[in-house]
Amino acid sequence: MIPSGFEYHRPSDLPTAVKILDEHGDEARVLAGGHSIIPMMKLRMADLSHLIDLQDVASLKEVSVAGDTVTIGAMVTQAELISNDALAKAAPILREAALQIADPQVRYVGTVGGNVANGDPGNDMPGLMQCLGATYVLYGSDGEREVDAREFYEAAYMTARADNEILTHIKIKATTAGYAYEKQKRKIGDYATAAAAVLIEQSGGKVTSASIAMTNLSDTPIHSTGAGDALVGTACDAAAISSAIAAMQADILPNEDNRGPIEFKRHVAATMLRRAIERAWSRA
């Protein structure tokens, strides 16, 4: 399986990359780790005349933790994210989730930016970024703009990013909240049947804030405010967890596919969320 032909570009700065994107419109796409787009091109599910490889754009590789502001460059790989101790300290849920993505070979090349920009409901980082309340920074010929991760996903493979914009980095707030990313997959390296990202803060044995997001249970990741609200003010007891699960069920809309029928997915979603809440609470 060899993709059909295209022109390859390898610019070394952002303005040049954007210029090539502008010139070729929707015939062009940026290439990050290639581990989503190359399989799609092999299957002829993506047909592109120009690929713009971002590997030489050094600014996209930067990671910084300054005070409570964490910035992750779009071209940082999952493996680099996992091995970065400053990141693991600032937001430990990042490492926990990244370790559950794909397999070692894929994590060496698959990037955080590619994972969130791709728009595939199966990707794990979009739900995670919604849970964290991340901000995506987009750069195009009209300059830079910021989009809330919770506003970014419109439908499968449809996002708020314009065709001629490049995601440059992701901003999140450092967090000491209790955390968990819980994922059910058929085998290692598989996309989620269902996954849950949870952050919980507590004071005096009561939940003071909770953020909950679900992966691969709708055509976009789902940030369930209802599920988070159901925990706030409670001692995270069984009744509160059941209400959170009920609220989450009202927000998701799974499809039947090769990972199972709808009832099964709802069952797995409930189990993942219960486990994630329990683990996050134990760490809060």
Binding site: Y8, R10, L31, G34, H35, P39, D53, Q55, V106, V109
Partner: peptide
């Protein structure tokens, strides 16, 4: 890396 998922150009 999986050489089936990398272009020689990359």
């Amino acid at each position: 890396v999986k050489a089936c998922t990398v272009f020689a150009a990359q």
